[in-house]
Amino acid sequence: MELLYATVVAILAGSGLYLILRARSFPVVMGLLMFSYAVNLFLVAMGRLHTGKPAIIAEGAQYTDPLPQALVLTAIVIGFAMISFITVLALRARSELGNDHVDARSDEDQQP
């Protein structure tokens, strides 16, 4: 299971990185989202993989590590704030420059 988990993290991170390296804003945003999935999975893995042991205090129960979960919960929400900001930034750049290239040059500048 651990190997499978690591593989999923690797593929998600790789796809995310590839998308972040693209030249247009929308794929970059998608890449960021994808990469944040990978990172969140990675962070949760700091508490190791446990099945059926949620960190809810009960009589005689076993618990997984709650700290990474709390941190990832924060990370998900912050990630949302970041993604929304970046998307709107991309939108604004498109509206100002006429294109959605990440170099942020207007159409006239881009003519070779």
Binding site: A10, S15, R48
Partner: peptide, 28 residues
């Protein structure tokens, strides 16, 4: 880019695997 992304993803994957197979000592 595909190679860079692949190596990057692979590194993170290896790191994940290495951590997952090691004992946990948490402050939790």
């Amino acid at each position: 880019d595909a190679v860079v992304a692949g190596v990057g993803g692979l590194s993170l994957g290896i790191l994940t695997f290495a951590i997952l197979t090691r004992p946990l000592d948490s402050i939790s």
